[in-house]
């Protein structure tokens, strides 16, 4: 049964690995998920669950990792990975076939009130609400994914909003100071130095935010 569990997780990562081979972060995530899911399966069996039931609970507990794969591997991997069927035997019985599918997009990410370890009770009670929850989830994580994409493209963390705010303030002040000093002193040949000072101040702010990051 553990082989079946491994095969299920391998299947979840197959498309992402094909699209992004030799991705260390992806390999580490898979190893982490494999180890933790195996341990969960072992615990469930030790608690008296049958191998089949333990497998079902362990697989149900994984949830929809498509967004996570997208963030880790980058690109449009997750959309296809989410609908691919992992290389896993789903023919044991009707219910198994149902639970052995990769998690659907509508599946809730958080289970409460005994939805997980005790089985699948209550997970599908509030279909409409859960759909809304998932939409919210996608919205919540959309910004993270945009940041991750930017990071992947540039190879460095995205600039923070705070830096953008500070930079905006610096340049507004510099521009106002330039016109004010220039009109007051009529020293137009010298006051352009304020822009050099602006560049320096902007770079200092940028360094500070980078160091904080």
């Amino acid at each position: 049964m553990k082989d079946r569990l491994d095969a299920y997780i391998q299947g979840l990562f197959a498309e992402a690995e094909r699209r992004s081979p030799a991705n260390r972060r992806l390999a580490e995530l898979k190893e982490e998920l494999l180890l933790n899911t195996r341990e969960k399966y072992d615990d469930l069996v030790a608690m008296g669950k049958s191998p089949e039931a333990a497998y079902r609970v362990a697989v149900d507990g994984i949830g929809d990792i498509s967004e996570l794969l997208k963030a880790v591997a980058g690109g449009a991997v997750a959309d296809e990975a989410a609908v691919d069927t992992p290389a896993v035997d789903t023919t044991a019985d009707g219910e198994d076939a149902d639970t052995a599918r990769p998690p659907m997009a509508q599946e809730p990410e958080v289970s409460a009130n005994g939805a997980n370890r005790g089985g699948r009770d209550g997970e599908n009670d509030d279909g409409d609400d859960e759909n809304n929850e998932d939409e919210d989830d996608e919205n919540d994580e959309g910004e993270d994914n945009e940041n991750a994409d930017e990071e992947a493209r540039s190879g460095r963390p995205p600039r923070s909003r705070w830096y953008a705010l500070v930079s905006g303030i610096i340049w507004t002040v510099i521009l106002c100071a330039y016109f004010f000093v220039s009109f007051e002193t009529h020293a137009w040949g010298v006051t352009w130095i304020l822009f050099i000072m602006g560049i320096a101040a902007d770079n200092v702010a940028k360094c500070i935010f980078d160091l904080r990051r």
Binding site: L29, E32, L33, L35, N36, T37, E39, K40, D43, G61, I62, G63, D64, I65, E67, L68, A71, P103, E107, P108, E109, V110, S111, A112, N113, G114, A115, N116, R117, G118, E141, D144
Partner: peptide, 27 residues
């Protein structure tokens, strides 16, 4: 701690009423 142990401790602490999906946890 590590992923499963954290999730397990949450589950134990809430008498099995709460557990995060792995996807949520790793995200």
């Amino acid at each position: 701690s590590y992923g499963y142990r954290i999730n397990r401790s949450m589950c134990d602490l809430t008498d099995g009423r709460f557990e995060l999906k792995e996807a949520t946890l790793y995200t």
